[in-house]
Amino acid sequence: MMTVFIRSLILYGLVVVVMRMMGKRQIAQMQPFELVIAIMIADLAATPMENTGVPLINGVIPILTLLSVQVIVSFISIKSEAVREVICGKPSILINKGQLVQSELRRLRINMNDLLEQLRGKDYPNLSDVDYAILETNGEISIIPKVNKRNIIVEDMNIKVKDEELPITLIVDGNVLYSNLEKSGRDTQWLERELKKQSIQDVKKAFFAFLSSDGKFYAQKKELS
């Protein structure tokens, strides 16, 4: 029992030191290759910890080897742009000047619900408020709002504002969300009229449409694939 206790302490201390040497980033901020190494280190430490028949050195050496690999790869990626793109990838623009980049969304297999969830998580419930949305190499989405939508503290300006409702998605990839349309108090005739105002003659040709929190209708036409 004491042997297991001591081995566990040694391996725990080693893993903590190794993870600190790898950097201070959280799991969500790690690059893919860093996450793979972290998972492998945890697995390598668990084997000799739970099985006293495995020599302790059989866990220590692979862990130190992976640490060396991570340090070397990180150093090379700092020095070489080409290597960094191969290992970490490069950011992808999902919204460009207020317009959805449909080809990137398809390539990255990101659906509109996931994108809207990410925007809401960044305090931008209205797609129309976003100038650029960039998917970073660690999986996080960075938002650059339109100039007139940058955050201000209303209290400091001593003005009164009314509460806003949540935006309502009406069309996703040519499919009308009838339950949302009914919730908004509109009908299909109204939807078709609004689409025609934005030069979209057929609902099936609309990639995305929604009613913003201030009651304005926004739509974007499908790109020709």
Rank of each mutant, 00 (worst) to 15 (best):
E81R: 15
F217N: 11
S212F: 05
Q189V: 08
E223C: 09
S92F: 03
M157G: 01
L177C: 06
L35H: 03
L119M: 07
W190F: 02
S80C: 06
R193K: 15
I110W: 10
V130W: 04
K183L: 09
G59W: 02
V176T: 10
I141V: 15
N51T: 06
P145I: 02
L224D: 13
I72S: 06
V176R: 01
R193Q: 13
T137D: 05
K97Y: 00
E117Q: 07
A82M: 11
D156I: 01
K97Q: 12
D202L: 04
T3M: 05
D114H: 10
N175W: 08
S8H: 03
R20H: 09
G98D: 06
V161M: 03
N148G: 01
K162F: 03
R20F: 09
M157K: 10
A28N: 13
E194K: 15
E104M: 07
V101C: 12
D129N: 09
P145K: 03
I87E: 09
I141M: 09
L105T: 05
F75A: 14
N51C: 04
I134P: 00
I57H: 00
D163K: 13
P62S: 06
L105P: 14
S80Y: 08
S92K: 10
S212H: 04
L11S: 11
Q220T: 05
N151W: 11
N58I: 09
Q118H: 09
